[in-house]
Each structure stands twice: as structure tokens, then as C-alpha cells.
Design a protein around this nucleic acid. Sequence first.
DNA 1: TATGAATGAGGGTTCATTCAT
DNA 2: TATGAATGAACCCTCATTCAT
Lengths: 234, 234, 234, 234
Amino acid sequence: MATETDTDVDTDTSPDTGTGIRADAARPRAQRPRADALRNRERIVSAAREMFVESGPEVPLDEIARRAGVGNATLYRHFPDRTELVRHVVVSVMSRAADRARAAIAEEADPFDALRRFVHAAADERIGALCPMLADGFDKEHPELLAERERLEGAVDSLMRRARRAGRLRDDVAVGDLLVALSQLTRPLPGSACMNFDQFVHRHLQLFLDGLEAPARSALPGTPATWEGLRRES
Amino acid sequence: MATETDTDVDTDTSPDTGTGIRADAARPRAQRPRADALRNRERIVSAAREMFVESGPEVPLDEIARRAGVGNATLYRHFPDRTELVRHVVVSVMSRAADRARAAIAEEADPFDALRRFVHAAADERIGALCPMLADGFDKEHPELLAERERLEGAVDSLMRRARRAGRLRDDVAVGDLLVALSQLTRPLPGSACMNFDQFVHRHLQLFLDGLEAPARSALPGTPATWEGLRRES
Amino acid sequence: MATETDTDVDTDTSPDTGTGIRADAARPRAQRPRADALRNRERIVSAAREMFVESGPEVPLDEIARRAGVGNATLYRHFPDRTELVRHVVVSVMSRAADRARAAIAEEADPFDALRRFVHAAADERIGALCPMLADGFDKEHPELLAERERLEGAVDSLMRRARRAGRLRDDVAVGDLLVALSQLTRPLPGSACMNFDQFVHRHLQLFLDGLEAPARSALPGTPATWEGLRRES
Amino acid sequence: MATETDTDVDTDTSPDTGTGIRADAARPRAQRPRADALRNRERIVSAAREMFVESGPEVPLDEIARRAGVGNATLYRHFPDRTELVRHVVVSVMSRAADRARAAIAEEADPFDALRRFVHAAADERIGALCPMLADGFDKEHPELLAERERLEGAVDSLMRRARRAGRLRDDVAVGDLLVALSQLTRPLPGSACMNFDQFVHRHLQLFLDGLEAPARSALPGTPATWEGLRRES
DNA sequence: TATGAATGAGGGTTCATTCAT
DNA sequence: TATGAATGAACCCTCATTCAT
């Protein structure tokens, strides 16, 4: 495992916080963020992730604030509008998924097993909450997002290249195919805190993974998917 | 093709309208439905399907009315509340998908090719719009729905049995697995009239189909999915 | 009984239709109203009276049409807008109340008993439905109304004069006092088809009648009430 | 005056605010109600009382908000739906009426004069606004209401018992008869800010009071009225 | 800073009235 | 003529966002 060289991600699995605010928190700044402010911030992102998953992306922000145990205005202090909050949740999920990918690389001997492990782990991390990324009006190029996305795509790309080199992954799929399909298959059902759903999701992921395995059983139409490719032309 | 007997659906491909109001329209009744009223009704369902796909199931009903070219109150005359309209769209989509399944059975010689054809055709029919069925608060047992659902599931079940008997479909998947995953993979992205998305969707469907093909490349966790299985326990 | 002369109303109790359209119906006109049109008209007024009493004066006109067993547009053919319908109901109620007053004069030997009888009979005729007359925006001077109002007021005035001459009715009350208070005390409770209410109403009317009886037990403030006196100055 | 003992209400006339929120405002609580919020709340109730009287209980809530000088959503923050607002107005009116009853007991020497004074004072307090209590769909048993109703009925009952013991009030009337008839006679005329109406109302009240006076001039039909007796049987 | 309160814009729905069969 | 259907204006209510404590 992890015998490759140059292009591979480093497999350091040092625990990222997964909040996407690491850098800011670590670096001392002019107005040092108070400890309770930081805690509030994390509680808000965390509550938002849960509620987006449970109740859909249209959930009232007041509900998120209540779940987080803060006043609504506190939420607005940290995230001036809804899109900011959504972006931070997306970044947070990406970060955690990237961590899982790295862990899979580091700890799984068989490259395709590593891929399988990542896919199921990403589902547990609610990677389906990334679906807003695909939606209209979301700034897919926001700097804060780009960094984390590269980290995630880098890690997944690494997973895929390893599997491909081992002859276990078909040649005609790219990192975007995996991530988009993965998001869709695990995309939460609005309004339902549906416990049963998870179990089905893992079945579908398993079927999808079987379809990814080499040798390819059919020719794929079109070209590999990427986030950028999803831009509308209108 | 269609050499099976008893349990199979009849493969009559007489063109259903797919609107789910066929019966009512055809049968003369006490209060004859006016011609223009019927036309309005279909235009509303059609506009709703498009807008649900393009903009998500939360689209303002006024927008649907505008798109349909009628006043908002006309929409309410036909569908007293949002859930009614959603249900009719779901029924309509199911009906068209069932038609596609039957056509695939009737016209494709190879059973797995028939399955493939259905899956891609269902995507074109926007079967992803069935996702509200999975959401909370949707009456999955409404009589009008049940009838059409049985027709769809019957047809898809037939497709799958044929493929399975021909040794082309793995044994451990049920009709619910296919339909739920199919809905998820083709589920529209709210707010994006994303032309590019379709092309990726067909890639993912192809991958998923490859995973469905026999022989199974892995063991599936859990039990086969069904709409009923998605009920919450709360 | 009915021994008075000049100023008294004639006590002919020939059965008025009470619809307030007698005159029109009897006199042949250019476009003779068809029999079914007349029947519809009466059914509408009748349904309206019932529903105003049961459900308040804001009841949807469609409901009235349904209760009358006609289409909504038929209602509008007969009564171009709500105020017209209300006026016809008011006229109808006035007419029936006037009939009751005349009958009381003709059939009751004791003048105060005649007054009592009228008051309770008017309650049964839902004279409380006259309350819209008191409300803003109602044309109290509409010709069609004036005629019937004079008939009612004439009859009630006669009742009161008889009682007063017999020394049974206090001197300081006028016909308006009686009719306005009577309307208020019998005014229906919106939204309640309250069977119990009637029984209380007759108690209160009885108390009010006792207050009307001579000799007066107190001095009344202000001046006698009339419909005209209720005009707003704004 | 107030020579009776045990069962009588205490005749403390300390000025209640009559808003029905006294207790909450006085007692310091966990979430201290802000001063301006309290002021807004009272302004809303006050505006609502005025507009219910002027324009009927169907007035648009937006108008009430405008009259109160607040945004519409502020109204909804304080009173989640129309029924809540109506109930608070009813409670407020009851409270003020009860205060007037107590004051009459305390300050009038003659028991029947006390009753007269209360009746006219209650009219000035717009006790006719209690009519929604009689209407369908109003929760007559709401706890907040029950307390104030008991206070009102207790005070009025005391007034009546005193008058009865003094031989001034007929024996066959109960507190419900007085309050229901009083509500009806003073019931506002929808849509009319009718200044003249008040003057007539006091005449009618005077007549009604004369009917209440002993000795009874007639036998009353039925049984004494109560709020409970007005429940529908459906 | 954290918060409860306030707000205006917008969506859902009803209903008086008009239109077309 | 009688009617079902269509319509827009108005109302109720919610929620993202701003304000004031």
C-alpha cells in the first residue's frame, strides 16, 4: 500500500478538524477569535449539516440556530447569509471526506478495497450534502472551497489511480464521475430522518462500485464528469 | 423476446397517454369535463413536471401556473393543494416509465439490453422526479398512486426476471433497488436547468447497470429496497 | 281588535309571497320571466337567508349557489353582486316580518299581546338578519327597500300605537327602538348553527318586552332610534 | 352597599390593567420580556379591540398591525394565529368589564343602581366584542379565558344577588342571561364606526334593565342562559 | 459579542366576479 | 338561460435578514 511516489498525496492522516476553519483558528490574527465564538461557530456548522441532511437545504435558519443552541443573530454574525453557511458546510463535509480518503489509502492494503472503504465512509460522512455544489447559484469557485476541493479530489484521484494501476478500476472513469454519482446516490431525502434509507444506500453504492471494477462491462457514453462541467450555459 | 408466459406483464404497447387521467377522460360522465378544462389540466401537469425537474419540488405554484399559461386559481381548481399536484406528476411519470418498460420488453431481443434501454429511457422521462415519493409527508399509499405503481413495478419486475432467467442479472437485487437507485441517480439538481447534467447521468446509469450484471462481483449488504421499506419509524 | 281607523294599516292578511318580487312577477313585462328562472330566484334568496343566518354574512356566494342547487353564474345573473343579494334577503325578511305584524294585529285581541306575538314571530322569521341594514355600505335608501320598510314600519307602528292607546306601552319608545333592539337581540351568531341559541333569544325578548311595558320604570336617554339615525357622519 | 358577607366578591377596586397579561409582566422571568416588546404587545391588543369593534372580527390582521404601528410579522410573533389574538382581546374586555362590576359594587349604594351602572359601563367597555365567544370555533374553555371569565361572572353574580336580595331584581334571570343579552345589544355593527349607535344602545339597555327589575311582568320561557349552554350539539 | 425582537417581501390559498360553452 | 371554468386581487402566514438591547 502507498508504494507510489511523485504524484500521490501524502498519506499523513493527522486528524484534520474537518471544520474548514482550521487555518483561521490556528493563525493568530488581529482580533483573536474568542474561544466561545469558535465553539459557537462549530456548533452552528454542525447543526446545519445535520439539519440539511434531515430536513433539506431549505430548512429555516432559525431552526438551525435553535438546534445549535444560539440566537439567530449569532448565526448571522458568523455567516452573513445562507450561502455562506452552506459553503462552510460543504467545505466541512469535503474536508472530512478527504480525511477518510487519506485514511483509506494509508490503512487499506488492496487498492480497490481502499476505494470501496472510502465510498462507504463518505456516505457515512453525508457526502450527499455536497449536492448543493451541483445546484444553481452556488459559487463553485469560491477560494475557500477550491482549496478543500483540491484536497478531496487529490485524495480520491490518488485512490483511483492506485486502483487503476493495479488493474482493478476501469479506465474510462474520472474522479468527477465517482464524486457526482456518490453525491447523488447518498443524497438525503428532504424531510425524512429516515433511518432505513442508509441501509439501502450502501447496497446501491456497492452495486455502483461493482460497475466501476475492471474489466469494464460496457462503454460509457459522453465524457468524464467534473464539477466544472456542470456549469449551465443558459 | 417476450417468450415467457403466465406471470409476465402483457406487452401491449398501446400508447398510454401517460397522464394518469386517461380513464376519466375517455369515459363519458355525468358532469362532462370541458375540453378546455382538460387541456388546462394537462398543461398544468406538464408544466409542473418540467419545473419540478428544473427548480425542485418547492417551486412556487404561481410559477407553474404562469408556465402553464393559466391563472394561479385555475391551478388550485384542478389540484386543491400542492400535494395533489405532486401526486399527479408522480403518477404521470410512473405511467410513462411503465410504458417505456413495456416497450423495452416488447421490442428488445436481449433481456439485459431491454433492461438497459429501460433505465436510460426512464432517465429521459425524468424518473428522478419520483424522489418526492421517498420524502416525508408524501402519501405513498394513495389509491391513485398504488395502481400506477403496481403497473410500473410489474413491468420492471418482468424486465428483471427475464434478465435473471437469462443469467444476465445478478440474483441479489430486487425491483426496489433498481427504482430507488435510478431515482437517486437521475434526481434533478434544484435550480439548475443543467443540460450537461444529463450526459453525466447516463454515464452513471451505465456504471450502475454494469454493477447489476451477473455474475455479482460482491455481496450486497442489507436487504432489497422497497418504497415501503423507506417508511420512517420515528 | 282592529277597531282603529284612518292611520292604521289595513289588516288584510292575504298571503304575501314574502319574496319581495311580487310586484314584478305579477305585472306582465316585455321579457316575461320564465317559470324556472323565477323558481331559481326564490331558491337563491331562500338559501341565502339560511346561510346568512347559519354562517354569517360573509359566507361565500358559491356556497349559497350550491345550497340553492344552481350554478354560481346563475346566482350572478339574478343578483349582479353581493349587495344586491343581501338587499333582496333583507327585503324578503322585512316582508315576512310585516306579514307577521299584520297577522298579529288581525288575530290578537289584546294589543300588548299582539306586540309580544309579533316580537317572537319576528325572531322566528330571523329578523336578526336585518343587521346588515345597520352596517356600513348598505344602501338604506334603495327604492325597493324603502317600500317594504314602510310596510314593516307601518305595521309595527300600528301595533305600537294600539298598545300605547291601551295604556300598555310606555310613551318614550318609537318603532326604531323596537326594530333595532329586536334585530340585535336576535342577531345570529356567525358560524354556529346553534339550536340552543333560539331558546335564550326568546328569554331576552321577553325581558325586553317587559321593559317596554307601561308604566315606564326609568327615563330613557337620547332620542328614539331610527334607521336613518344610524348613518355615520365620518 | 356591600353589606353582604361570605359569598360576595371582594370589592377591592385596585386598578387592574385589564390587559390580561398583568401577571406575566410583573413577575420577573427567565427570559425577561423586553420593554418595547411589551409595549408592542399592548398596542396590538388595543388596536385589535378597536378594529374588531369598528370593522368586525374578520378585519385583516395586516390592518390591525398597521393601526398598531408595527409590522405584520410582529403581530404574528406575539399571537401565532388569529384565534390567539381574538382570545386576548376577549380576555382583555372581560377583565375591564369585571373591574367595572367591582367598582359598581363598591361605589353604588343602591343595588339596582349598581347593576344599571355596570350594564352601561360594560357597553362603554365594548363588551359586545365578547360576541366571538358565542361564535363557533372559539375555544370557550381555554385556561387563560376561564380565569377571567370566572372573575367577571363572579362579580356580575354578586351584583345580581345583591339586587335580588334587595327585592329589586326578578328571580328568574341568571348571570348568563344578562351577559349574553348585554353582548348582543351592544354588539358592534361591522363596518360602521357609528357614533350614533352608542346612544341608541344605551336606550335599549335601559329598556332591558327595566325588564329585569322586580316584580317580573311575565314568565320567561326556557332555562337561564350560560356560555356553556351555547355549545352546539351538531 | 450575543440575543430577542422587528420587519418586508413573498408564497399559499380563497373568493368575488367574469368568461365561454 | 344556465353553467362550469377562469381569473386576479386580497388575505394569512413564514422566513431571511436587520435592528436594538
